[in-house]
Design a protein around this nucleic acid. Structure first.
Lengths: 241, 241
DNA sequence: AAGTGGTCTAGACCACTGA
DNA sequence: CAGTGGTCTAGACCACTTG
């Protein structure tokens, strides 16, 4: 039954089964051979067979139902994975400015700050050649006596890593909001585009476990030459291609 | 050592270890107790301990290095998951029109068709109350003699499911491209907005295993009242909250 | 050489689904 | 009731890393 002969047994079983899904021999909703059947077929034990099946289950290709068996699942073609490019990946940074400012009411609301509390503001413009493709404003609550932070800001440290110095990296998550806006006057000037031009607005909110925002970043991104758009993927091509 | 007493042993070990990550006792780069150590601690076998560790590994919280041990990984705060809302989730469909048209050169390029080949064109507008929030154009290569397809198109079948009738559902994946555009004349008319207004343009390309586009959809989406933007998430809050 | 994770065996008992 | 998956035991051998 096994075509693949090299490597661990459980990988042979795994790829044999996966092949059956990929060439349409097994379709969504169909059932798979039982663990015992497979164990007999491959002359191995249930433990090994289970390892193969759980690999497929983890990938979302199949699911199990105790007492019934394994079944082919229906792919979720609406679940996308998206890689958010850091500024550095997007282009070169021409303009960069860090300042500590008094928070206004809007910032106080976003970052849940007491009035008068100060925030670090990081501005940046990102170029590709002569063209400015994006500009970026980030805000962080300012805590005095975090020398590390002040050090790091002089280098090109990705924003999540900066946030991770305030809160341990497992204790926060990120929300990304993607929208389209007309270029405001000041942004248009930085980007060198006309006010009113359509821009992608990417807002990142870094949230702690209590779901409070501990860091905020807004990137205005311009459309140009195949850049300036975001791409995401769904389906089973990414896994092993 | 175990705090959790209910349920399977491997879940106790799992949540104990996870707790150590979440409260900062173990930080990215730190090593974890060895399988043998844990097995002794919990008075169980390596097999059971491995099950716990592989759960954490699958979630991306830790990784293993044969011969060395397990280590806490650095979270990828740039990897987002995004749920693409189907038309039905977005609002009600007011306008809907299906037609079979001759492909022009642009469509032929997108869908890799021979000249003259016909395509199914599905137009739709999506409303929330009195407001049109999005409009949507989808293209599919037209194959005569697929009565199923023609049936389904009269109902509200999600686009991926329609594509799945051409190609088995495991044999294609989706690419999503997100960009910002100025509303073209015709789209503006449908949406009831001014030409030139900023719109989110969401283009979906359904690709087969040979990376050829077998279905295309473009949605122009308008900004309004907290709707009209896409949100994505990254980090470890989604898993078990 | 001792310890680590990776693979695998040959059993066991359980709760559950279905005829 | 026989069959299924879920959990677990108590071993084994391997390749690898580290002192």
């Amino acid at each position: 039954m096994s075509i693949t002969q090299k490597g661990p047994v459980y990988l042979s079983i795994y790829s044999d089964l996966k092949q059956m899904l990929q060439d349409g021999r097994k379709r969504p909703g169909d059932d798979l051979p039982s663990e015992n059947t497979l164990a007999a077929q491959y002359r191995t034990t249930r433990t090994t067979v289970r390892k193969s099946l759980q690999l497929l289950e983890k990938e979302g290709l199949i699911y199990s139902w105790a007492g019934k068996g394994y079944f082919v699942s229906k792919p979720a073609h609406n679940a996308f994975s998206l890689d958010f490019p850091e500024d550095e990946q997007l282009g070169d940074s021409r303009y960069r400015r860090i300042s500590v400012i008094k928070s206004d009411s809007q910032l106080q609301q976003i970052l849940h700050l007491e009035p008068g509390k100060r925030v670090i503001k990081i501005c940046r413009s990102i170029d590709q050649g002569d063209l400015c493709v994006a500009c970026d404003i980030k805000y962080l609550p300012y805590e005095k006596g975090t020398p590390l932070l002040e050090q790091e800001l002089n280098y090109f440290v990705p924003f999540p890593d900066i946030v991770a110095q305030i809160v341990p990296t497992f204790l926060f998550y990120t929300e990304l909001e993607i929208s389209a806006v007309s270029a405001p006057q000041d942004i248009a000037q930085v980007l060198g585009c006309a006010p009113g031009d359509p821009l992608l607005l990417l807002q990142r909110r870094f949230m702690n476990q209590e779901h409070r925002c501990i860091g905020y970043g807004a990137r205005y991104q311009r459309q140009c030459f195949g850049h300036g758009s975001l791409t995401a993927h769904s389906g089973y091509h990414i896994q092993h291609d």
